[in-house]
Amino acid sequence: MRYAMAIDTKKCVGCGDCVVACQTENNVPHGYCRDWIVERVDGTYPSLSLEFRSERCNHCDNSPCVRCCPTGASHKAEGGIVLVTHTKCIGCGACIESCPYDARYPHPEGYVDKCTFCIHRVQKGQNPACVDVCPTRCLHFGDLDDPNSDVSLALKDRKWKVLAPEAGTKPQLYFLT
């Protein structure tokens, strides 16, 4: 099993619904977020292109954050989901430094927090909150090992890219282009 997410940049409108839904679902404190939007503009008026990307933890196969965590709080859970056990975390911030995607933040309670792929929902057979809320249905989640999962179907016949491939982290967010 390998959980992953595909994000269709041809449809994302950068509305930020995924960000608010994550905030209310996961009780993310105000002023912080587990997912965020990047707007990228290329060209000059009027020959322009614009890409919105809904970004979050890449749940990397080769995750530097897990490797550098001195307490084992950052770890891999089922399906490759990268998690932080809040009670084990001492808030040293090594993982924040090591993440090439800036996906982690220091929670005011003293531990490090980040996207969990909504494991509490996924375990119950639901989609992550951001996936279920997205009005353009541009987020696709599922098991890459299952050819009929939403994410596998979304990746079929489409071009995609990952972010910072040069970091060698084997990220599991696929941006459809």
Binding site: E25, N26, N27, P29, H30, H86, H107, P108, E109, Y111, C118, H120, R121, K124, Q126
Partner: peptide
Amino acid sequence: KWFEPKIEGPVSDE
């Protein structure tokens, strides 16, 4: 209370 940051995981829909 909700605004006071504290460890409180997400609650499942049930």
